[in-house]
Design a binder for these strands. Sequence first.
DNA 1: TCAGGTTCTGACCGATCGGACAGTTTCCGG
DNA 2: CCGGAAACTGTCCGATCGGTCAGAACCTGA
Lengths: 183, 183
Amino acid sequence: MSRSARPGTRREILEAAAGLFAAGGFRGTSLQDIATAVGCSKAALLYHFDGKDTILSELLAPAVAAFRELDARLAVLDDRAVRLAAVEGFVDLVLRFRREVVILYHDIQDLLRSMAFAGVQEMTDRLLDALAGRSPEPEARTAALLVLGGVPAACAASGGLEGSGIRGDLVRSAARALGLPAD
Amino acid sequence: MSRSARPGTRREILEAAAGLFAAGGFRGTSLQDIATAVGCSKAALLYHFDGKDTILSELLAPAVAAFRELDARLAVLDDRAVRLAAVEGFVDLVLRFRREVVILYHDIQDLLRSMAFAGVQEMTDRLLDALAGRSPEPEARTAALLVLGGVPAACAASGGLEGSGIRGDLVRSAARALGLPAD
DNA sequence: TCAGGTTCTGACCGATCGGACAGTTTCCGG
DNA sequence: CCGGAAACTGTCCGATCGGTCAGAACCTGA
């Protein structure tokens, strides 16, 4: 039975699409853009993938899985521990999946929707409460929203993302300086 | 000579467009979307404005003017004062023009380009240096990038923006807690 | 009442999008 | 060398985009 599906091509397409999506957004990148970057025809992309949406979702799959895993871990913790672990774990995941977050960040609605797992949802709710001024501890609120907003922005602004110099301990020290223990 | 141009209509269009652009981005909002929100035909929009781009630029004009004014003020200050004033002034302007920043924030490239005035450019350069790890004072760097990224994200996440509860003194206290004097 | 400008509409246009499809090339086991 | 699956291309399609245009509706001052 033949050698069935050269895996390199799919990887190549996903890699090119990831870069283009991160730079120009999902809507701002056409299939022809990806095809040109890869060096094949637009139809070839649709041979390997069911559609543009499939390319995106396959691209984000590892990140989504990681956030689901975080969600599962947080589900077994009590309320206070959940909140603290959510900050720590969220920052870690954002840093680990910088490019994916940047892609989602081009449409904040999609980002928040992708975070709509139970545990991370609580984190998001607390952020929204803070933004609406319905939560105490102003420094903690500010720290949370800055961490949420700043890391994706940092990834986006740094361009290539690789070698951006952003490290988790920097963000953690910032959260700590704002009165929110992160370890 | 007639009563010439009812000003309310243009205002109404700009207001509707601002809300839709902030919620769904410039690319994600069609002329038909705006027309539906206003309650008129798509062609009516193009009677009042030269095109979709014109609606956006007219919408952003006050914000752009304010950033230019900040730029002019910063131009006459020495280096250290420039940097401190840039942080303070930038945060103030971002807070004052929340919705406009959110619109620009849907495409970070456009945002950075809109900040490309001499004084604000220095601020941006320092941020980019910080992101690339080419600058000392890690806490100050982190604070700067969090302020840059967090405030627009906060505005976007809060939805309607009005009554979001985000106040300049909160952001300033965060910057201060991070070791970056802001007053 | 009527002439004329303002305001607005419905229909249409070219461009571009994601996607479908038939046919062609490439490659490899037998 | 050959047959067939895999990989790929060129071409076409419907939908939607921003934008144009001729004409209808509306209002106002004479």
